[in-house]
Nucleic acid binder design. Structure first.
Lengths: 274, 274
DNA sequence: TGAATAGTGTCTGTGAGACAATATTAT
DNA sequence: ATAATATTGTCTCACAGACACTATTCA
C-alpha cells in the first residue's frame, strides 16, 4: 500500500472507483387529512388520513402506484434537498414539514441494482395544494391492527384500491422497535408498504409531545375538527373535556365562528406556538 | 427512449452506470457505562457514559479519533449487517443492541468523495467485552448544555482529551427536531460529533418509555447503580422513592446482596421483561 | 321541536414530586 | 460511633379519565 505524506497528497491520488458503489433515492410519505362528507345534513364530515401516491410511468413496477421519490444526485444535493425537489415537482410547494423517517436498504428492494432509500415524512394542509402533478393522487388510509401483530392497510382514491398486510416482529433486545415484513401486496411498488406503516407509527408516536398535527390543519379550525384528526391518527376516541384541557395551551381563540351545520356553531381556533 | 415490452426485458437492458453513484458507510455509536472509582472507601463509584472510538490508521483524518465504521458492500449486505460486521471486528461480540439512528449526508462530509453514512446506536454492558480491538478505546463522556442551544462535549480516555461544541438550531415548523452544526472541533474525524450528540439525545428520549438501559447493565445490579445510570443519561438527579416506584415493574428481586461498601448492603436485582 | 354537535363543571383515581424517617454496614 | 448509602412511608399536587350537564343551531 502506497504511503502518503499528508492528506492533500492522499486525496489527489484517491480513486473513487476502487470500491463498488450504489445509488440512493429519497422517498416521500406525504400525509394529509381528508374530509369525508356525510349525507345527513346534521352530521359533521368524517376525517381520514390520506397519502399521496404516484403512478409509475416506467419499469420497474410500471403502472403500479408508489410513493413519490427520486434518485439522489450525489454531486450536488443532500437527501433532504432531493426530497424537497421531489415535493416541489409533485405539489408545486416548497414550504412543507419534512422529517427524516428511516433508511430502507434491503439488498433486493429494487430489481434494477442496489438502491438504498432514505424516506421522509411530509405533512401538509390540503388547502395549500392547488396544482398537484397529473400522475399523483390522494389515497384515503384505512389501517386495521389485527391481534397477532399483523397490520392491514387499505388505500383508496375513489378509483383504485390498494390493500396490503404487514407483519410486525418485535426486535431482539427491544421493547419498541419492530421489523416489518410485507405479507401480502399486489399493488404497491417497492417496499413502500413498510414506509407507509413506519411513517404512520412515527406520527402517532409524536402527536402527543409535538405540534406536528398543526402542519396538517388549515389556519382556522374548530376544536372538534382538531380532535377528529387526533382520533384518526391515534386510532381511538378521545373524551371531549380531556382533549380540550390537553390542547388548550397549543391553540388560541379567535372571534370567528363556524356556522352552517345543523347544530350549535363552534368557535374557530388557530395554532399558538410555544 | 427505448420502449420495453415487460419488466424482465427492461431489467436485462438496465445500465447501472447510467447515473452517478456513491458510497455508503455504517457508523456505530457504541455506548456503555463506566465506573469512576472514588478514593473515599465509604463512597460508591460514580457512573459515566462512555463511547468507543478508534484511531484512524489512514488518510483522511489520519491519527484522529472517530467512531467505528466501515464501507457498505452494496452487493452483499445491508447497512445493519455492515454495522454488525464492524462491531464484531471491534468488540468480538455479535449480540449487541443495535438501532438505526440517522442518515448523515452532507455533500462534503467526506473529503474523498460523496459518502452517505447511516449511523447506528449500539449499547453494551462493558463486562461482556473481553477483547476489544487494539486501535479502539473507551472515552468517558461529559456533556454540558449551555443556555444558548450550544452543547459542549468532552471525551476522555485517560490519555487523550477530545472537546467540541455543537450548536443546535430548531428546525422550521418543528418543536422537537434540531439541525446540528459543529462549532468547534479539532480532534474528532468527519461529522461524528453530530452522531454522538444525536445518539445521546436518542437514548435520553427513549430511556423512560423503553427498557434500553438494561442493555448497558450487568446481569445483577443494585437499584442505586441503576438509578445512577438513569441520572447520568438524563443529566439530572432523581429522587430515590420516585425512582424505585417507576422502575419496580421492570426489575425482579434476587436473594443476592452486595456488601463491602462502608454502608448498608444493597439488594441485587435483575431485569424483568414485560 | 329534536337531532346533533359545542362547550363546561366536577369528582375520582393514579402517579410523580417532595421530604421525613428508619435500617444497616465497614472502619 | 459515624459517615454513607439503602429502603420505606406518606403527604400533596397535577392531571387524565369519566360522566353529567348546559348551550345553540337549522331543517
Amino acid at each position: 500500500m502506497k504511503e502518503y505524506k499528508n492528506e492533500k497528497e492522499f486525496l489527489e491520488d484517491y480513486d473513487v472507483n476502487e470500491f463498488e458503489r450504489l445509488s440512493m433515492t429519497s422517498d416521500i410519505l406525504l400525509l394529509s387529512v381528508s374530509d369525508i362528507k356525510i349525507s345527513n345534513y346534521r352530521k359533521t364530515s368524517k376525517k381520514m388520513m390520506s397519502v399521496l401516491l404516484v403512478k409509475r410511468r416506467d419499469f420497474p413496477y410500471k403502472g403500479k402506484w408508489c410513493l413519490p421519490g427520486g434518485f439522489l444526485d450525489p454531486l450536488s444535493e443532500t437527501l433532504e434537498e432531493c426530497a424537497k425537489r421531489v415535493l416541489k415537482r409533485e405539489t408545486n410547494l416548497s414550504n412543507i414539514y419534512l422529517e427524516q423517517l428511516f433508511t430502507f436498504d434491503d439488498v433486493k428492494r429494487d430489481p434494477r441494482t442496489r438502491v438504498v432509500s432514505t424516506s421522509y415524512v411530509a405533512l401538509v394542509d390540503k388547502n395549500r395544494l392547488t396544482d398537484i402533478s397529473s400522475d399523483a393522487s390522494w389515497f384515503d388510509i384505512t389501517l386495521i391492527e389485527e391481534k397477532d401483530d399483523d397490520v392491514f392497510i387499505t388505500l383508496d382514491n375513489g378509483v383504485d384500491t390498494i390493500s396490503f398486510t404487514i407483519h410486525k416482529t418485535l426486535r431482539k433486545m427491544s421493547t419498541d422497535r419492530y421489523d416489518f415484513s410485507i405479507v401480502d401486496n399486489k399493488d404497491l411498488a417497492f417496499d413502500h408498504a413498510k414506509v407507509i406503516l413506519a411513517g404512520l407509527e412515527r406520527i402517532r408516536n409524536k402527536i402527543n409531545y409535538t405540534d406536528i398535527v398543526f402542519n396538517m390543519m388549515p389556519k382556522y379550525f374548530t376544536l372538534g375538527e382538531l380532535q377528529q384528526v387526533y382520533e384518526v391518527i391515534l386510532g381511538k376516541k378521545l373524551l371531549d373535556p380531556a382533549f380540550r384541557r390537553i390542547i388548550a395551551h397549543k391553540v388560541e381563540q379567535t372571534d370567528k365562528m363556524q356556522t352552517g351545520g345543523g347544530h350549535r356553531p363552534s368557535r374557530l381556533f388557530k395554532y399558538k406556538k410555544n
